[in-house]
Design a binder for these strands. Structure first.
Lengths: 194, 194
DNA sequence: CCTCCGATGGCACTGAGTGTCAAACATGAC
DNA sequence: GTCATGTTTGACACTCAGTGCCATCGGAGG
């Protein structure tokens, strides 16, 4: 990595760290971008050269989870039921979260608790859901335009995931996210569907 | 209704109509509040005395659907399965939409097509989902804090509804929303669950 | 040493949303 | 009819998000 690139990364990290600290202590809506840039020591204009909005600072932690989910789904053995394959593919989410549980739960709580952040998160999830639906259609060898099943399987899977995530956060991570996800999938898809 | 109240309603209608016309012709994000108030002949400040935001002009059409859904759910016979009761309760949505299909489909298309509107819609839906989950818990006589089933039933129901709504809008209302909803519910809950 | 390019900051602007205030106006009492 | 009251309105000023533009600085390379 060149010097310029490292400098750029430095500023980015500085902004992210300052934002995280302020958002955690004051809440999302109460924190202004002016406060963040003051804490990071850059101009307001520079902030927008790194992030499109305050929301983006947090949402970027999601990275390329959507692509990873789709790839993981495509990699599941064809013998698995769609529901089972989707459940296993969700491991890319739970793995990411388990890699740093405290931070993940803090970010998740922040997101679930702020309407603006939640909106951006759901916007992303809508895309992921569509991608997963398309991949399930391929796996099931049906036309997604006429057969609702792949899309509904994806939609139900994400509904289960959202519920599991909420339980996980509300319970302060007492129980594993995977445990919640297993419970939820077993209920929505039944023993037979999985 | 007093004269003052009727005058207030008049201004409100004027704003709604002006907004609807502009939003339909220019799109949601492209239309500014200044354009709306200019078309309605009131000041910008007055707009905000009637609506909290541009989004609210559209979102208010949803009215008290959440409360109505909950009431309808509570009114379903106890003998029905939770899924069946939820499906029948969704009639408050389909009835509202069928009361004026062209307008409903236009509004739905506008909402599904605009990130800001979609966000506000989903925010509302989250509340409805929670309410429906609570009502289902009562109906199922279980504690929603420990038993995921009522919440998941509501979540899956809304997932089915969202998918059905999208199909309905994408198909330009060619097929009844109720038809889509029946198809979706049969898939996600199966013949047994209903 | 000079040139070029990327990063930065400053400035001005649009647009959303809010607080404040004074003028306008309908309502009700006398 | 007149006066007092409460509501609605427009105007202005302000904060905050987000964008375009331009001058400047500093490092990389010839």
């Amino acid at each position: 990595m060149t010097l310029a690139e490292r400098k750029r990364q430095l500023v980015r990290d500085e902004l992210t760290e300052a934002a995280l600290k302020l958002l955690a202590s004051q809440g999302f809506e109460e924190t202004t971008i002016d406060q963040i840039v003051a804490a990071a020591g850059v101009s307001r204009r520079t902030f927008f050269r790194y992030f499109r909005s305050k929301e983006d600072v947090i949402i970027e932690f999601l990275g390329h989870l959507g692509t990873k989910l789709r790839d993981a789904l495509a990699a599941r053995p064809a013998a698995e039921t769609p529901a089972r394959a989707l459940r296993e593919a969700f491991a890319v989410f739970t793995d990411t979260y388990h890699h740093n549980p405290e931070k993940s739960i803090r970010l998740a709580r922040l997101t679930l608790g702020s309407p603006a952040l939640m909106a951006r998160y759901l916007e992303r999830q809508t895309q992921w859901r569509a991608d997963a639906g398309a991949e399930l259609a391929r796996r099931m060898k049906v036309d997604p335009a006429t057969d609702l099943r792949p899309r509904l399987t994806a939609a139900v899977g994400f509904a289960a995931f959202d519920t599991a995530l909420t339980c996980w956060v509300d319970g302060d991570g007492d129980q594993d996210l995977n445990t919640w996800l297993d419970k939820a999938f077993r209920i929505v898809f039944g023993e037979t569907g999985l």
